[in-house]
């Protein structure tokens, strides 16, 4: 039990440490990145001075890809984290609190399930043209409800276990029980949901950028692909469309692989423990 708890805590720590490193790298990376300036060399093919060529207003594609990296990846990761956090809070409340609170949360989730979240997302995006933070908030707020039912079922199962009952008997509060006993045991599910969220959020960020519904100053891989569309019939499409498209595919594959690995790792650990 103890090892299991510390093992899980370590996972949380790992996750947070990983995020901190990611953020730090992003900041470092942005400060070294040349600015995404327009220039006189428009629609240049890849060359020694522009490794991935330039676009129709002379911006360097490689710089664009790198500038768009945090705007696509980091936004997706942070939005997923936010959605998951909201989902856990709501699911825990729905599972532990009885009566009208639970009913209210579940009905709210039902309602949100009925309304297609992508429409809400498009509507708000068209209205406010979100930037970096806006996008995180918007995607986070429109996708949390997907996980509430799954998590609630898991938490309901876990709260009937002996360890929780004993802890309650000893006078532990629900918050303590949740943090120490319940969440650690549903960790594999949380990991899986998190990675699934990242994939979906990445597609949403790219999609919004592609549809031109984000702040025009925010470069994303999606918006780069959109800009490339005018040159679909020219050879320029090769260096305008392919790099952001490939980056997007690569990241999604990476997220998929990571998710599988985490899941396997968690399952293996669980097997070891049992």
């Amino acid at each position: 039990m103890v090892t299991r708890f510390y093992g899980t805590l370590k996972q949380w720590q790992n996750l947070l440490a990983g995020l901190a490193v990611l953020l730090f790298l992003a900041v470092l990376f942005l400060s070294f990145l040349p600015s995404y300036d327009v220039g006189y060399n428009t629609l240049q093919a890849p060359s020694r001075s522009h490794w991935l060529g330039t676009n129709d207003i002379g911006q360097d594609v490689l710089t664009g890809i790198l500038t768009a990296l945090p705007n696509t990846v980091l936004v997706a990761v942070l939005a997923s984290l936010m959605a998951l956090f909201l989902a856990i809070v709501m699911a825990a409340n729905a599972a532990i609190a009885k009566g009208w609170v639970a009913a209210l949360i579940l009905r709210l989730v039902d309602i949100l399930h009925i309304i297609p979240s992508i429409l809400v997302l498009l509507l708000f995006a068209a209205w406010i043209q979100p930037g970096f933070l806006g996008m995180i908030l918007l995607i986070g707020l429109t996708s949390w409800h997907d996980d509430v039912r799954v998590l609630r079922a898991l938490i309901l199962r876990e709260r009937t276990r002996e360890n929780v009952a004993f802890a309650r008997q000893m006078g532990a509060g629900w918050g303590y029980c949740l943090w120490r006993h319940i969440l650690p045991s549903v960790w594999p599910a949380i990991t899986g949901l998190f990675v699934q969220h990242i994939r979906q959020s990445t597609m949403k960020v790219a999609g919004l950028g592609f549809l031109g519904l984000t702040d025009p100053r925010l470069v994303t891989w999606g918006s780069m692909m959109q800009d490339a569309l005018d040159y679909l019939h020219m050879s320029a499409a090769l260096w305008l469309l392919l790099p952001p498209g490939l980056c997007l595919c690569l990241f999604l594959l990476l997220a998929l692989a990571l998710g599988r690995r985490l899941e396997r790792y968690s399952l293996a650990e669980e097997r070891d423990l049992s």
Binding site: D37, V38, D56, I57, G212, P216
Partner: peptide, 13 residues
């Protein structure tokens, strides 16, 4: 509007 995106980007820079 969108039809001026390129020009607006260059101008604002």
């Amino acid at each position: 509007s969108k039809s001026f995106k390129k020009m607006a980007t260059v101008l604002s820079q």
